[in-house]
Each structure stands twice: as structure tokens, then as C-alpha cells.
């Protein structure tokens, strides 16, 4: 049986301090999480329970819904102080759902990236039409939806197809950074990208 708390504790012991837009620091009361842009700020709102993380993660600075939690629009102005690694794990699961488990699966060699064509081939119902997405449309859609500046912070592990890599984003989009940063990994196109593919194929506007 896995113990994801122990794995997270090990990473923190070795100096792990960043996940996405969150920085983690040891504090007198345990661990403190805050937005990486808020390091040094003294005027932050204090939160102390993991349930707060879900609320903090749900809306951006303007109060808009963050359907994609790995979008680079985490709200500012808070700090979350938690007593132990288990509660830090719960909070990180709220801020960045599944990202602890997915990375640990990768470390165990159990994470299998799924290429976009396979993801689209599996779709049924209203999303079956996404199988008509052309390679050019896929490259453009991915460049627009998955870019780190405004789209998604995850590192892409999949290709469009076995023969065709994603070549419409810079190399860092596909590269896991240093040990001190917990990687946000995308091993398969998300439903938001699949829904975006449907709009492209049907010629619908991006928003709405």
C-alpha cells in the first residue's frame, strides 16, 4: 500500500518548497502555504483549516470561478497555516487536485501518458466529433489553451499522436524542473481541452 503522506513528508524534508503558484514554508505552528507572489507580505488573511483551501482555490482575485485549478490565476492575499504534513497534503489536493498522486505514480513508473488522438478516439456522445480535429487545429488549440502564461501550469507528458509531438509550445512546457518544485503533470488531455476541441471542430467561438 502506498503512503502519499510519507512521500510528501520526504519531499518537504529534502527542501521541497514550491508547487504551482504556492510556496510552502516551515513555521512555528507547522507549515505555512501562501501565493508565491505574496512572499514577504505582512497583510495576508490567515486561514487555519484545510477546508479553507478548497474555497481559496475556487475563485480568482476577481471572484471568477477557476474551473481549472492549475490555471495560473491562483488568488492572492492569504496564508494558510497547517499543523502537519497530512493537512498540508489535504490542502494541496484542494489547490492542485490529483497532482500529488499523479507525480508519485510517475515516480513509481505507473503513470502512462495518453496521446491526444487516443483521448479523442475514446470520446462518445457530444464529444465524439472531436475525432475530426486536424493536427493543425490541435497544435493551435493546445498552444492557446495549455500555455503557461494564461492557460495552464501543468507540464505536458503526452503527444498529439505517436508520430506527432506538440510543437506549438516552448520546450519548458514539457520539462520537469528542479527537485524543490513539485511538478504539476498532465498525463492526458483534460476535459476542458476536449471541450475546446469540440468547439474548434464545430466552428463555435472559444468562449460561451
Amino acid at each position: 500500500m502506498m503512503d502519499t503522506n510519507a512521500a510528501l513528508a520526504d519531499w518537504l524534508d529534502k527542501g521541497g518548497r514550491q508547487i504551482g503558484q504556492i510556496t510552502i514554508a516551515k513555521s512555528a505552528d507547522g507549515w505555512e502555504l501562501r501565493h508565491i507572489d505574496d512572499v514577504g507580505r505582512e497583510d495576508l488573511c490567515l486561514y487555519t483549516i484545510t477546508a479553507d483551501a478548497r474555497q481559496l482555490a475556487n475563485l480568482d482575485d476577481a471572484g471568477a470561478y477557476r474551473a481549472l485549478k492549475t490555471a495560473p490565476n491562483l488568488r492572492h492575499g492569504w496564508r494558510l497555516v497547517l499543523p502537519d504534513v497530512a493537512t498540508v497534503h489535504s490542502a494541496l489536493d484542494a489547490f492542485y487536485p490529483a497532482m500529488i498522486g499523479v507525480q508519485l505514480a510517475r515516480e513509481r513508473g505507473e503513470l502512462t501518458p495518453v496521446n491526444l488522438r487516443d483521448t479523442l478516439a475514446r470520446q462518445t456522445g457530444m464529444y465524439r466529433v472531436t475525432q475530426k480535429l486536424t493536427d493543425e487545429q490541435a497544435q493551435s488549440l493546445i498552444a492557446d489553451s495549455c500555455r503557461c502564461d494564461g492557460g495552464c501550469l501543468k507540464i505536458i507528458l503526452w503527444r498529439i499522436s505517436e508520430e506527432l509531438p506538440v510543437n506549438s509550445l516552448p520546450a519548458e512546457k514539457f520539462t520537469v524542473r528542479g527537485q524543490n518544485e513539485w511538478p504539476l503533470l498532465c498525463h492526458e488531455a483534460c476535459n476542458i481541452l476536449v471541450a475546446g476541441a469540440r468547439k474548434v471542430v464545430k466552428g463555435e467561438p472559444k468562449e460561451g
Binding site: 500500500m1 502506498m2 503512503d3 502519499t4 474551473a67 481549472l68 485549478k69 492549475t70 489536493d93 487536485p97 490529483a98 500529488i100 498522486g101 499523479v102 508519485l104 505514480a105 505507473e110 503513470l111 495518453v114 498525463h187 492526458e188 483534460c190 476535459n191
Partner: peptide, 15 residues
């Protein structure tokens, strides 16, 4: 289906 953890991610989170 429409949010995360997704159905494709969740089993990786289970011990």
C-alpha cells in the same frame, strides 16, 4: 467529469 480530480487522475490518488 468536468473538474479535477478527473476520472483519469483519481485512481493515482488512492492508496
Amino acid at each position: 467529469w468536468k473538474e479535477e480530480p478527473s476520472l483519469r487522475q483519481v485512481l493515482h490518488c488512492v492508496n
